[in-house]
């Protein structure tokens, strides 16, 4: 690998910028980065949903809906049972079912996958708006855990090692997914199915089965992203709670070239940008209406996609239903 690659350039820039801010004000920089990491996690997890689906050739634009409905279920089941673990489990189940529904529509019924995903989004928006009740509370959120020793490291400790349980589970899932995609037979088969399904089929890999499995599991991961928002980061639920994060995640997936670590890096960048925007508002460094800082993530999504579009190469069989024997 070239030492002066574009990727290394990004990293170098990120490190230098961080060091510069840290040298100016250590405490604030640390807290901004910790917040940035917290903002980044749901985006990264949601991007994993997209990666798992698209690597096997299924376009999932229903991530937003999956997150929204799961966040809702997580919050209200936790509120009813006064137990956030039960809430979490029900959310993951809900998300998996959303994935399963997508698989039925996209794989078995060979529906247009954009329409199938839109159905999930409308379903989630409708259900959560209809069933929403004001004034509910949950006993507590997933409390921050301080990893012994590691959390005492300056800067890195608070940024990376003081988080709630769902964050650590999420990070583990992202790393595991990266390893699995490139180093296990499941990953090899998934990629083959997403690139050239008839090759996989003639090699004895069931295209439909693998697509069902991946899309369903991905739904569960999407649910984790939703539950993280309502049970760890915010601790409440409102209508339209996920605010387009599921769509932003699709952009991050593309920016990260369908690679889990790439998408994670992109998510961290976005999370940080948002955290900085918030900090600027708090500091009153710039005196602009909050609406403008609030649109920052969306503007960045558009800018980044515009810059990276055209250079990327999605899985070749993306969005195409597969029919056996059509070689």
């Amino acid at each position: 690998m070239k030492l002066l690659s574009k990727r290394n350039g990004y990293f170098l820039f990120a490190i230098l910028a961080t060091a510069f801010f840290y040298s100016k004000d250590g405490d604030i920089t640390t807290s901004v980065y910790a917040t940035g990491a917290a903002f980044a996690l749901p985006l990264a997890l949601a991007a994993m949903v997209g990666i798992m689906c698209e690597r096997t050739g299924i376009v999932n634009i229903g991530i937003e809906g999956t997150m929204l409905l799961s966040a809702f279920v997580a919050f209200f089941v936790s509120s009813l049972t006064q137990n956030i673990i039960i809430g979490l489990i029900c959310a993951v189940f809900t998300g998996s079912m959303m994935g399963l529904i997508l698989a039925v529509m996209a794989v078995s019924w060979r529906m247009d996958q954009i329409i199938a995903g839109t159905i999930l989004n409308i379903l989630a928006t409708g259900l959560t708006s209809f069933l929403y009740v004001q004034g509910k509370t949950i006993p507590s959120v997933f409390q921050a855990i301080e990893v012994p020793v590691l959390s005492k490291i300056p800067f890195f400790g608070p940024v990376l090692f003081i988080h709630g349980a769902l964050t650590f589970i999420g990070i583990a899932i992202i790393l595991a997914l990266y390893v699995a995609i490139y180093h296990t037979s499941w990953g090899l088969r998934s990629r083959a199915v997403g690139e050239h399904p008839s090759s996989a089929d003639t090699a004895g890999v069931s295209v439909a089965r693998l697509r069902y499995i991946n899309v369903t599991i991905a739904g569960g991961i999407g649910a984790l992203a939703g539950a993280y928002l309502s049970l760890e980061l915010v601790g409440s639920f409102e209508r339209g709670f996920t605010a387009g994060k599921g769509f932003t995640a699709l952009a991050l997936m593309i920016f990260g070239r369908w690679n889990p670590l790439g998408a994670l890096a992109a998510a961290l960048f976005f999370g940080l940008a948002q955290a900085y925007a918030n900090q600027l508002m708090i500091d009153q460094v710039v005196n602009i209406p909050t609406q403008f800082t609030a649109i920052l993530p969306y503007v960045m999504t558009i800018v980044v996609l515009t810059i990276s579009a055209g250079k990327v190469r999605p899985p070749a069989a993306e969005g195409q239903p597969y029919e056996k024997g059509q070689a």
């Binding site: 090899l188 990629r191 083959a192 690139e195 050239h196 008839s198 090759s199 996989a200 003639t202 090699a203 190469r313 070749a316 070689a327």
Partner: peptide, 9 residues
């Protein structure tokens, strides 16, 4: 007849 190979692998 049509190659059953994944082009990018």
């Amino acid at each position: 007849q049509h190659f059953q190979l994944v082009p990018v692998m």
